[in-house]
Design a protein around this nucleic acid. Structure first.
Length: 886
RNA sequence: GGGCGAAUAACUCAGCUGGGAGAGUGCAACCCUUACAAGGUUGAAGUCACAGGUUCGAGCCCUGUUUCGCCCACCA
């Protein structure tokens, strides 16, 4: 393999598609249904079929892919279960919009034809996001891909519904629910997004029945007054205590409504008199229930006023508000208007203002399920990471309210309930019945509503594995190992999977839940189309490559903090990919022949050092990934490859590598180089799958894919090479080199000028280190000559660098600038003195000596000794410079 | 109203069980040294938001304050 084969810079595009195809064709992502290997499983948070890959997906997928690829390298049987969600409302909206463009509507088409249209749309456009996941490198087991509307998953949905119904945990009833007048469906409490808004608080006089005065009520929603069936005051309110009147006239109507008394009314707010609209306000609903008030619906499913609104009937609810206010003002009943900030609910799919409305819907009684789900986290069967999310989880579970699961749309799992037209029998069945099981009539009709999309998502961890069948897959992989998701769907999805998983599988759906942060723009703002700050992940991949992009996400994915994404950050990691690429190019120039096994005895210090660092890095990466600290894992491997492998080891190895063929040191060096490069690629592979695989394929003497290699932390021989003593010695050597380089730089000496140094040391270990590594020092410090001397002062003019017990004199006869050197030494001394002071202060403190642990005192004392030695040597050299100057 | 989180170099952020502050980018100087200028070497740069407290010792623990985010809640 000659270096010509590798481009000078890494070009990701072709390489990425090439490898992804091969991996898929070779079945590299496949999980085994049964295996002796340790099972590791993750179910993907199924993206909506309507979805387009955004930064949130990219982070979510990257993290999961890192974990899965890492586990495969550890030799585990990994299942990463992929799929998509049918996304009821979102999908129906898109298909309806497409129909509208053709002048069609779903009503015109009819239910069956419309559903057919949706399936057609899904088959054509629904896979887009899957291909985008592949661009990222997601190593899902694609042959097992599932869709929440698949037959098997639909069966699971039915089974769950029927069981819950039979257990009395699903019921139908008339309650106040959140209604979206645009989507024309009920929504669950979670599907409403509240937003603070500048509104007005209107004070309206409701005259007493006898026409006098009356009560002034305060409301932000005057249009609902047509549904008022009472006015409420607090019995303890002094203003109303002596009220003799019992009824008021409802303005703009001919109705008379009662005055009721209830503690619920806040005496501080408005006038202390509250208009009660049981059919359009959740609080008023409760109040109405308590006082047995009539419920009058005045707003229909489209948000238009009903007959109850009299002359305003047919108006849109917001038009009606204005019209009613105008009419009230004309009648002198609008007392005043003041600004008020309140929060208003919007539909999470279309942002329309939600209408609280009385409606007959299906609900899940969740309290018993929530209890078990909550306890499972309390007992640690499922861990939430970072832990502080547990509190949020408990808070929600403990205050949970029944879940409205029926939706008045067509796209979704149709509720398996039938009603007999002749006898009124209700049937809840897993299999469609033909006749009424009570009277045998064929006049039975199925409930027209479908289920909340999140109902089927709640079954995802087991429905995708074949439940209710007792499959091998379930036996092997349930409970799943980890769930990786954003906190935005903690309640929507995670909490509900916990409830249904514990209920139907008798065990938690996952052992760990890792909650990652949101991806924001570089200024920390949420990305949104309206702000125009959205970065398209696919464009980033096109420009910088998937590896650089993934690494950026991982490097910024610190627990509990949002990821701020900008292209310039990706650029930095693109440079890292390139660095690796070039380091590999260099390595490959020296690895064309056979390499031998490594004899630990024959290794040089720098070789032992890089092997030790490889081991330490492997452990750091392992630890980082296994504890969900991806940024730590990423920075460990980054630091290692760039600043240890490239900056120090590759440079240091050149001395040996450029020896003649057959030279022993050269051969050993080549073997070490190959070994370290190989392990670097393995460690980096979970983060950067494409470039590592490409380089791997170019290495001599390796077969197959890097995906099937062994992660170095699993290899005891490798881990045993970690040696702190070696690392300490190496850092002495590197400090010597850096010291010489510093002098070169401070004295403005060009890199091309070769220097000579004289080493004076009283420390035998330090002397030996330099002796055994003269080649390395000469190469890296660009020296012409290195000699040892027992004299503390060299004959000619020189600058001195002190490292530990060693003084290096850089000979600078004719070039030295005495003032500059004096300055430099003074600065050094100042630094040392300052440190010495703080160290001495501690050592002179008796309570420190008394109470601090032994090893801390020892460390500080040792430091003091080192600093004193250094100080002496610096002072001596300073004196000498002054001498020579004069 | 309740809860959670953040405040560390010019910028973006690490700093996990308290031992004396790190990285990347940017900046300055020198260098196209035979893997890499998407690079190398060297350097400058921080009262760790503020005020108390605990401790021999606090960026880290406790209390309070300020500023900024986010989530939840039956704010008429």
């Amino acid at each position: 393999m000659s270096s010509d084969a590798l481009e000078k810079g890494y070009v990701p595009s072709g390489i990425e598609t090439k490898w992804y195809e091969r991996w898929e064709n070779n079945g590299s992502f496949k999980a085994e249904d049964k295996s002796d290997k340790h099972a590791y499983s993750i179910v993907i948070p199924p993206p909506n079929v309507t979805g387009v890959l955004h930064m949130g997906h990219a982070l979510n997928i990257t993290i999961q892919d890192i974990m899965c690829r890492y586990r495969r390298l550890k030799g585990e049987n990994v299942l990463w279960m992929p799929g998509t969600d049918h996304a009821g409302i979102a999908t129906q909206n898109i298909v309806e919009r497409n129909l509208a463009e053709k002048g069609l509507s779903r009503e015109a088409l009819g239910r069956e034809a419309f559903i057919e249209e949706v399936w057609k749309w899904r088959d054509k456009s629904g896979g887009a996001i899957i291909n985008q996941l592949k661009r990222l490198g997601a190593s899902c087991d694609w042959e097992r891909e599932r869709f929440t509307m698949d037959e098997g998953l639909s069966d699971a949905v039915r089974k769950v519904f029927v069981q819950l119904y039979n257990q009395g945990l699903i019921y139908q009833g008339q309650y106040i629910i959140n209604w979206c007048p645009r989507c024309r469906t009920a929504l669950s409490d979670l599907e409403v997004e509240y937003e603070d808004q500048d509104s007005s608080l209107y004070y309206i006089r409701y005259p007493f029945e006898n026409g006098k005065n009356g009560l002034v009520v305060a409301t932000t929603r005057p249009e609902t007054m047509f549904g008022d069936t009472a006015v409420a005051v607090n019995p303890r309110d002094s203003r109303h205590r002596d009220l003799k009147e019992t009824r008021v006239k409802l303005p703009l109507t001919d109705r008379v409504i009662p005055i009721i008394r209830d503690d619920y009314v806040d005496t501080e707010f408005g006038t202390g008199a509250l208009k009660v609209t049981p059919a359009h306000d959740p609080n008023d609903f409760t109040l109405g229930e308590k006082h047995n008030l009539e419920r009058i619906k005045v707003i229909d499913d489209d948000g238009k006023m009903l007959e109850g609104a009299g002359i305003f009937a047919g108006l849109d609810r917001f038009e009606c508000r204005q019209a009613a206010l105008k009419a009230l003002e004309e009648q002198g009943l609008l007392v005043k208007k003041e600004p008020l900030q309140n929060s208003v609910g919007h539909c999470y799919r279309c942002k329309t203002v939600v209408e609280p409305s009385l409606s007959k819907q299906w609900f899940v009684k969740v309290a018993p399920l929530a209890k078990v789900a909550s306890d499972s986290v309390k007992t640690g069967k499922t861990k939430i990471i970072p832990e502080n999310w547990e509190k949020t989880y408990f808070e929600w579970m403990d205050n949970i309210r029944d879940w409205c699961i029926s939706r008045q749309i067509w796209w979704g799992h149709r509720i398996p309930v039938w009603k007999c037209a002749s006898c009124g029998e209700i049937m809840v069945e897993e299999i469609d019945p033909d006749t009424c099981k009570s009277c045998g009539s064929t006049q039975i009709t199925q409930e027209s509503d479908v289920l909340d999309t999140w109902f089927s998502s709640a079954l995802w961890p087991f429905s995708t594995m074949g439940w209710p069948e007792e499959t091998d897959l379930l036996k092997t992989f349930y409970p799943t190992s980890s769930l990786v998701t954003g906190f935005d769907i903690l309640f929507f999805w995670v909490a509900r999977m916990m409830m249904f998983g514990t209920r139907f599988m008798g065990d938690v759906p996952f052992k760990d839940v890792y909650i990652h942060a949101l991806v924001r723009d570089e200024h920390g703002k949420k990305m949104s189309k309206s702000k125009g700050n959205v970065i398209d992940p696919i464009k980033v991949i096109d420009h910088y490559g998937a590896d650089a992009f993934r690494f950026t996400l991982a490097a910024f994915a610190a627990q509990g903090r949002d990821v701020k994404m900008s292209e310039s950050r990706v650029e930095g990691y693109r440079n890292f990919v390139n660095k690796l690429w070039n380091a590999s190019r260099f390595s490959l120039m020296h690895l064309q022949e056979d390499t031998r096994t490594i004899d630990p005895e024959a290794l040089s210090l720098t070789e032992k050092w890089i092997l030790s660092r490889t081991a330490a890095t492997a452990l750091a990466v392992k630890n980082g990934i296994e504890t969900y600290r991806f940024n730590e894992a990423a920075s460990a491997v980054y630091q290692f490859i760039w600043h240890e492998f490239c900056d120090w080891y590759l440079e240091a190895s050149k001395a040996a590598l450029y020896e003649k063929e057959g030279n022993e040191k050269r051969e050993i060096s080549r073997a070490v180089l190959a070994y370290v490069l190989k392990n670097s690629l393995i460690m980096l592979h979970p983060f950067m799958p494409f470039v590592t695989e490409e380089i791997w394929s170019l290495l001599p003497l390796v077969q197959g894919s890097v995906m099937h290699a062994e992660f170095p932390s699993e290899n005891t021989a490798m881990i045993n090479m970690h040696d702190p003593g070696v690392e300490k010695n190496a850092s002495f050597l590197f400090d010597v080199i850096s010291g010489i380089r510093n002098i070169r730089s401070e004295m403005n000496i060009k890199p091309s000028t070769r220097l000579s140094i004289v080493v004076h040391t009283s420390d035998s270990l330090e002397k030996r280190i330099i002796e055994e590594n003269t080649g390395v020092v000469e190469t890296l410090a660009r020296l012409e000559h290195l000699s040892f001397s027992s004299e503390t002062k060299p004959e000619s003019a020189s600058a001195a660098v002190v490292v530990m017990g060693t003084t290096i004199h850089v000979l600078l006869a004719g070039i030295i600038d005495f003032d500059r050197e004096e300055n430099r030494l003074n600065k050094e001394i100042e630094k040392v003195t300052k440190e010495l002071l703080s160290v001495s202060k501690r050592l002179n403190n008796e309570s420190f000596l008394d109470k601090a642990p032994e090893e801390v005192i020892e460390k500080v004392s040792e430091k003091k000794g080192d600093l004193e030695g250094k100080n002496d040597k610096l002072a001596m050299n300073l004196a000498r410079i002054k001498e020579m100057k004069d």
